[in-house]
Design a protein around this nucleic acid. Structure first.
Length: 322
DNA sequence: AGTGGACCTGACCTT
DNA sequence: CAACACAGGTCCACA
């Protein structure tokens, strides 16, 4: 096949407006910079000031916010399925149509959930929230792919953001389908479950610097592949929070905190409150949650979650993200 | 049941 | 400058 002209990163609609589309979206409803850099997803990168490039739904996107509009552009595949002529119009097959990309983005950012009303309710119930909310408007929970979310958060245990990001980048590069090159930088999809079930997966992950998490990632991939499957994992979206949590916690490397992250960020469990060491300290110092232990015991974990659910209500996880 | 250690790694901050 | 503690936890082995 012919060698395609190298694609370039796009940073703003002005240069080539026909490649961009936009959705109505005021800053009070979404602050792209806060949401994409807050550690919910590790796959977005500020490619130029105000422009965020990343992989979503098997495509590479650049997003930019300008006033009340959310602008986006989607990059084509490296090989736009040149051989694939069966099944009708090639142009249609090669390119997602506008309605579809709009839908993907609206779904990912859950734009049908009105954030300003939620902020008002949380603020009314909690003066401390009001204070923080002032400086951090437009922070909402992403609706991520369950497989990506699960394996990403397995990598977060006892780890820090900079290393997590680098690990996941290497994971995608080594196990994920290559999508395209932008400014000669390759972009890869997040690996499918089956890509992680190989016999040598653990060793390869070790070589990529995953440490003891290599066993967790490959072990969880195996367990899901032999159990509920990718479909079953996704179907946890329709199960109750407690059930989803129970299933996730049975996987190696998945404890209460990681399970809650996956529940909140990919399985539609808005009441899930992931309690990390930071949240634990906040709960004690700022909210005076009285808990005996010097460490975050399972009981303390449960009580802190219950406390915030009591304070903020059924979307406590969303409030926590702020 | 509930608690203390070990666990991979490496950018970053104190000694 | 090198050692070090530390970082968005989890698992396992013992009271």
């Amino acid at each position: 096949s012919r060698s395609p002209t190298p694609m370039k990163l796009r940073d703003a609609p002005s240069a080539c407006p026909s490649l961009w589309r936009c959705l109505p979206c005021p800053p009070a409803e979404l602050r792209l910079d806060l949401v994409l850099s807050s550690g919910q997803s590790f796959r977005w990168w500020e490619s130029s000031p105000g422009a965020w490039t990343g992989v979503l739904g098997g495509r590479v996107w650049t997003l930019r916010q300008d006033g009340d509009r959310l602008w986006y552009t989607v990059y084509g595949e490296e090989d736009e399925h040149e051989e694939e002529q069966q099944g009708g119009c090639p142009a249609k097959a090669a390119k997602l149509d506008a309605a579809e990309t709009d839908r993907i983005l609206r779904d990912y950012f859950q734009l049908d959930v009105g954030l300003s009303a939620l902020y008002r309710a949380w603020g009314a119930a909690d003066p401390l929230f009001r204070k923080v909310a002032n400086d951090f408007p437009g922070v909402r929970v992403l609706r991520q792919d369950p497989v990506e979310c699960l394996f990403s958060f397995i990598c977060t245990s006892n780890n820090h953001i900079s290393r997590i990001t680098a690990m996941i980048e290497r994971l995608c590069q080594a196990f994920g389908r290559r999508l395209c090159c932008l400014d000669s930088r390759p972009f890869h999809a997040f690996p499918s479950l089956s890509a992680l079930t190989g016999a040598d997966a653990e060793a390869r992950l070790r070589a990529l610097g995953f440490g003891y998490r290599a066993k967790f990632v490959s072990g969880s991939a195996r367990a899901i592949a032999e159990g509920l499957g990718t479909e079953g994992l996704c179907q946890l979206r329709t199960e109750p929070y407690a059930e989803a949590r129970r299933v996730l916690c049975a996987l190696p490397g998945v404890g209460a905190k990681v399970a809650d992250c996956v529940c909140l960020l990919s399985l539609d469990k808005a009441e899930a409150v992931p309690v990390d060491t930071h949240v634990w300290h906040i709960a004690q110092q700022r909210y005076g949650v009285a808990l005996g232990g010097k460490s975050l015991t399972p009981r303390a974990y449960q009580e802190i979650g219950d406390f915030f659910r009591g304070l903020w209500g059924p979307r406590a996880g969303w409030a926590q993200a702020v």
